[in-house]
Amino acid sequence: MNNLAYKRETFRDDYTYRNSPAAIRRFPFPFAEDHYMYSVNIEQHQPGAPGSIVEHAFDIDEHYVSECKDKLLTLAQDKGRYAALPHMMDAQWDFLELTMESLARDYPQLFTLTKDVDHWTWRNRPLEIEDSFIFGDASTLPLEPFDYMGRQVQGDFVLLDQREGTLFADAGFITSQADWSLAFDIGMSWHEWHGPVPQVEKMGIMDRALKFLMSLQQGSPVRRLNWTMTINPRLDTSPEHFPEWGPDKLTVTPQNAGEKAHLRVELQSMFRLPRSNAILFSIRCYLISLEELATYPRWAKRFHRVLKDLHPDLLEYKGIKVYHEAVLAWLSQHDDGAEIAAGTHPG
């Protein structure tokens, strides 16, 4: 995807965000079976099929420019969406290095990084950014290194410091979160941070995920998919701005659900960082309306079945309860009850 036509679109107010047919086709539909169970489902984050969302370490797609613009709007309203505790400066540079090197390698027509020992020059063509700086000297960048690159990569990012037998969320760049607050959660340990996750604790999944991440190795990043739903294609579904987007949840009807209700899939990828020994937790959000999803009938059928028997705790946790009936009504028109083979593929 080196010659992207960037869509000019909005993730708020008039909500002009749409997916092109190509973007729908590569959408990371997460349900391989008709019943959903929470699981760790971790796999190696190795380069995937050309054109897929996992072809590269960080996926840049047709929404890149508009999404970066939306990040700036969110930050302007609430600067608490970026925060880094003082001991995370090495991790900040690690993040800058990883993202710059990855983007320059994977999208050479869009991004260029030139290095003369510690003198680096970064060029981001889509966003028209060019800066020269000294690697390791934050005073030579217009922003802190994590803030600087957090604005130039789609998705949210958390930097986790590993100590005292756990991981601490000690820095974050969070503008498209599924209802959690960085300003509130920063500095929390793994289990405090995931405190509100339902059911899951009983099964010890968070303990296993923590153990696994603590032994994550450099050079062997991993990924998993997570999902929820969002009404209107809104990236900033933060608790901070809940009064702005909360009322939208009550506007869903069986008639408009196809347009308003969106499946929100997060590609979470995790990298061990070199200098800081910290872990980068990257959360990339993909949004698709039910209408777009129904372009592929097996997706609509499957999603209908998944939602129909989702555990009440998960409905509550994901905030779906209030519009659950309306969404099921819309989806049921697309479900003839015929059996679908296992797998997440579109057609």
């Binding site: 699981s39 760790v40 489902n41 971790i42 796999e43 190696q44 296993r208 995920a209 153990k211 696994f212 032994s215 991993v222």
Partner: peptide, 9 residues
Amino acid sequence: YLCRGGACG
């Protein structure tokens, strides 16, 4: 296999 690290099951 998936994770090869004793975690994913």
